[in-house]
C-alpha cells in the first residue's frame, strides 16, 4: 500500500468535506473487504482514506415512506437479523450465499454495491477495460468468468455486486450525497451502474467526492422475491451467474414481475421481455422455463464462457420458482 492519510468523520457532512480535499483523490472506506485489497495491489492509490464507520446515520435500518431505508454502512449480519427486512427474501438469499462469518461481519451493503469488478485482468493492473496495444486482453485471453451480455464495447468484465440484482428487482433507490454537503439525490439503483467506454471512467455514476449514504427499498406488499446464485464452491466464492426475481401473484396469475441478472454483464441486466411474458399467467415451471429462455436469448458469449448462458438461464428459472417456494427453485 502507498501511504495515505486516514480520516474518521462523525457526520455525513464532515465525511463529504474530507472526501473533497486532495482534489478528490480520496477513497471511501466501509468494511474494507475490497478497498484494502485494491490498495495493497496499488490499483487504488488515494491520498486520503475516509473511514465512514463512525457516522451513526449510515448504520441505521428504519422504516421510511412505508419502505425500508438502509444505511450504506449496515453490515451483512445486521441485515440478516433485522426484522424490517423479513419480507425482502431475495436479500437474505444473498447473505446466505456469502459463506464466511468474517465477510458477513465486515461487509457492508454500500460496499457491496460499489465493489469493483473481480476481472483478473483488472485485478492484475491492466485497467477495467484491459486493453493493451489496442488488443482486448479479455477477448484474446481467458474470459471464462467474463460478460455474456453487454460485452460488445470495450468493457467485458462483470458487475461484482451481489445485492444489486435483488435490490434492482425490488425497485430500490440509492441516495447519493455530495460532493457538496448540501447535495443529495435519490436515483433508482437500476440507473446507478454504467458500462465504461473509456479507461478513465468508473463502473457507477458516482463522481469524485460522492458516496452512497442510504439504500431505500419500496414497501413490500404481496411481492415474493428470491435470488439464485450459481456458486461453484461450497465455501466463499463469487457467483458464476445469478438472477433475482420479484413477483406479485394475485388470483393465481402474475400481476407484476421483475427479473434481474447479475455477474453476466458490466452492469446488472434487467430482463424486461422475460418478465413481461409472465404477466397474466400462472407462474408454472413451463412459464419459468420460457422466461429463462427469453432472458438469455440475446446473449453474446465470448470464446470461453458460453457455459455461462446456461447458468444464467438456470438462475432465472430457479429464482422465479424459488420466489414462490416451488421445489424446483432449488435452495
Amino acid at each position: 500500500m502507498r501511504p495515505f492519510e486516514y480520516a474518521r468523520p462523525d457526520t455525513e457532512a464532515e465525511a463529504l468535506e474530507m472526501l473533497n480535499d486532495h482534489g478528490g483523490n480520496t477513497a471511501v472506506l466501509a468494511g474494507g473487504t475490497d478497498l484494502i485489497s485494491l490498495m495493497k495491489r496499488e490499483l487504488v492509490t488515494p491520498d486520503r482514506v475516509v473511514d465512514l464507520k463512525n457516522v451513526p446515520s449510515l448504520s441505521e435500518i428504519r422504516e421510511e415512506d412505508g419502505g425500508v431505508r438502509i444505511g450504506s454502512l449496515v453490515t451483512l449480519d445486521e441485515m440478516q437479523k433485522h426484522p424490517l427486512l423479513n419480507n425482502y427474501q431475495s436479500l437474505r438469499h444473498v447473505i446466505d450465499g456469502i459463506r464466511a462469518i468474517q465477510i458477513q461481519h465486515m461487509g457492508t451493503l454500500g460496499g457491496d454495491l460499489c465493489h469493483l469488478p473481480n476481472c483478473w485482468y483488472f485485478r492484475s493492473g491492466y485497467g477495467l477495460l484491459a486493453i493493451e496495444r489496442g488488443v482486448s486482453l479479455v477477448e484474446a485471453g481467458d474470459n471464462r468468468y467474463h460478460a455474456i451480455f453487454g460485452n460488445q464495447g470495450a468493457a467485458k468484465f462483470v458487475s461484482a455486486s451481489r445485492f444489486a440484482p435483488g435490490l434492482v428487482a425490488w425497485g430500490a433507490r440509492v441516495e447519493v450525497i455530495g460532493p457538496n454537503p448540501q447535495q443529495s439525490e435519490s436515483i433508482p439503483l437500476e440507473h446507478f451502474y454504467i458500462t465504461p467506454k473509456l479507461s478513465n471512467q468508473g463502473v457507477t455514476v458516482l463522481k469524485p467526492g460522492q458516496l452512497i449514504s442510504h439504500i431505500w427499498l419500496p414497501v413490500a406488499r404481496q411481492q415474493q422475491s428470491a435470488t439464485y446464485e450459481v456458486l461453484q464452491m461450497e465455501g466463499l466464492d463469487w457467483p458464476l451467474a445469478a438472477a433475482a426475481s420479484c413477483v406479485e401473484i394475485e388470483g393465481g396469475v402474475v400481476q407484476s414481475a421483475k427479473i434481474v441478472m447479475g455477474h453476466v454483464a458490466p452492469t446488472p441486466i434487467v430482463a424486461t421481455a422475460a418478465a413481461t411474458i409472465l404477466l397474466g399467467n400462472a407462474l408454472t415451471v413451463d412459464a419459468a422455463n420460457l422466461a429463462a429462455d427469453i432472458a438469455v436469448s440475446q446473449a453474446t458469449p465470448l470464446s470461453n464462457n458460453g457455459y455461462k448462458v446456461q447458468l444464467a438461464r438456470t438462475a432465472v428459472k430457479r429464482s422465479l420458482l424459488k420466489a414462490i417456494g416451488h421445489p424446483e427453485g432449488g435452495i
Binding site: 486516514y6 472506506l29 474494507g32 473487504t33 484494502i36 485489497s37 482514506v49 473511514d51 464507520k53 449480519d77 462469518i101 468474517q102 461481519h105 465486515m106
Partner: peptide, 13 residues
C-alpha cells in the same frame, strides 16, 4: 467480538 480478517483491516481502524 466479531470475526474479522486482520489483514483486511487497518490497525488505525
Amino acid at each position: 467480538g466479531k470475526a474479522t480478517l486482520a489483514g483486511s483491516r487497518l490497525a488505525i481502524e
